[in-house]
Design a protein around this nucleic acid. Structure first.
Lengths: 112, 112
DNA sequence: TTTGTATACATAGTTTTTCTATGTATGTTT
DNA sequence: AAACATACATAGAAAAACTATGTATACAAA
């Protein structure tokens, strides 16, 4: 498991990205999917996941619909149009940030 | 400029990495170097930089020496042995995190 | 000459984000 | 019956960067 600090700023982008590939997903499912995709290296805790999802909804990037499965409630999340646009921007920004980061991590002595 | 959240968790690693390539650097110099290396995309603010440096010192990863340049004080930072070891670990962890992130950002539909 | 910009440090207080811990409840396996 | 997995939620803590502010020197431009 990576130190939790690294995830900061990237969690909502990860969630949004997953939702671009799935019409709708529920919270628990998202956490499991990230766990699998990251080979157990990113483990999203409930205390991070649900507040993050609530914030995405407050910001209008996702909307929800409830569904009963047997006796249990599931709350599905799906992207709004605003959310789709925002996801493109956020993923792009994250990719740019990653490549900038890498150029620094690879950089050799005094470029000045 | 990237949204500030992205930097969280990576700033100290960036600073440490720069110090592996320079015997000693002072705060202002570090901020400028990052600005140049990132092509103005990562702008470290004083309110982030100095507390981060102080924490690295408290944690024993860097040590300092003061120097007068003309009439102005400069505080140089340099890696301790502990800092060298820690830098290797942190850079490695960050690289791994980046590659995990990328695999998620690239991922296509339902792998389940 | 005074205004602005760059250099160079520092800290107080705020905001954001994730965390730990806890709670509720159902379903399944041992 | 106990343990574990599924499935949601929130309160409060911790971490890290931010804004804003402060001190001070050096130099260029108006």
């Amino acid at each position: 498991m990576y130190s939790k600090e690294l995830l900061k700023g990237t969690l909502s982008t990860i969630i949004l990205k997953l939702l671009t590939h799935n019409d709708k997903m529920y919270g628990y499912e998202i956490a499991q999917r990230v766990k699998i995709l990251s080979k157990d290296k990113i483990l999203i805790k409930e205390g991070s996941l649900y507040p993050a999802l609530h914030k995405l909804k407050d910001d209008g990037l996702v909307d929800t619909e409830k569904e009963m499965v047997g006796n249990r409630m599931r709350k599905y999340y799906f992207l709004t149009e605003k959310g789709r646009v925002s996801t493109l921007e956020k993923v792009d920004e994250l990719n740019q940030f990653i490549s900038t980061l890498q150029s620094i991590l690879i950089a050799k002595p005094q470029p000045s």
